[in-house]
Design a protein around this nucleic acid. Structure first.
Lengths: 121, 121
DNA sequence: CCGTATCCCTCCGGATACTG
DNA sequence: CAGTATCCGGAGGGATACGG
């Protein structure tokens, strides 16, 4: 649509929808440091419910960003690890993250300006 | 949290939440080509409701990515245009968009593989 | 032409409890 | 330890109608 190809646009939207959801980026960045177990991720993220961590990991697995390895021991152990595709995704995601960190001040200033000008009206 | 600073993380999440919502990127990419009027955007996007276009533009204006200029003519005319901040945001967003366009095939293949292996079970 | 207001419905996501 | 099942409140977002 924008690039003269609406299929392209939905592709981009699809990726952005995944990247933009509440937990995906945190999980992917954590896994960027190496493989991790379920409860390890859970603890490091700190505010995520079991349900959402499972859902997030399933989505990432489905899209080929993460592998899930089960060790049938007792107690069970499951490792999650970034695939090559996942590590490649990390590059543009980090670029956006860096931009956000650098410019968050400007955004917050704009918000404060906007909000106070609204209150005035 | 991830970078040892949870404020950073919320900053990144905030930007990603904005970028990841359903319409923001499409609007921003369209405005990247130059200023545009409300219904012009509406037509070019094609599937957006009036309500959501208004909400998206308000959000972008609040965050300082877009300016809104009203010409008090009859009928009224309102132009939306990217700010410098908005144009800067476009750089990492385009990087992610390009990545998505290049790799969408790999993602869709992974999805197909995952889905058929689930059906089998 | 450019919105705001309202209704309504879906799905996200949290809390909790239970299984292998 | 790792996950599924269920319930539920609330935000997201579409359709429609009305106002300046």
């Amino acid at each position: 649509m924008i690039h003269g190809n609406s299929a392209d646009c939905r592709a981009v939207s699809g990726i952005l929808a995944r990247v933009g959801d509440k937990w995906t980026v945190l999980v992917v960045e954590l896994l960027g440091k190496g493989p991790m177990r379920f409860n390890e991720l859970r603890r490091m993220i700190g505010g995520i419910s079991q349900k959402m961590l499972t859902a997030t990991l399933r989505g990432l697995e489905r899209d080929g960003f993460v592998t899930r390895t089960v060790y049938p021991t007792i107690p069970p152990r499951v490792d999650y690890e970034l695939t090559d595709l996942g590590r490649e995704l990390l590059v543009p995601v980090h670029a956006l993250g860096d931009w956000a960190r650098v410019n968050i001040g400007r955004v917050e200033a704009a918000r404060a300006r906007f909000d106070s000008s609204q209150k005035a009206a």
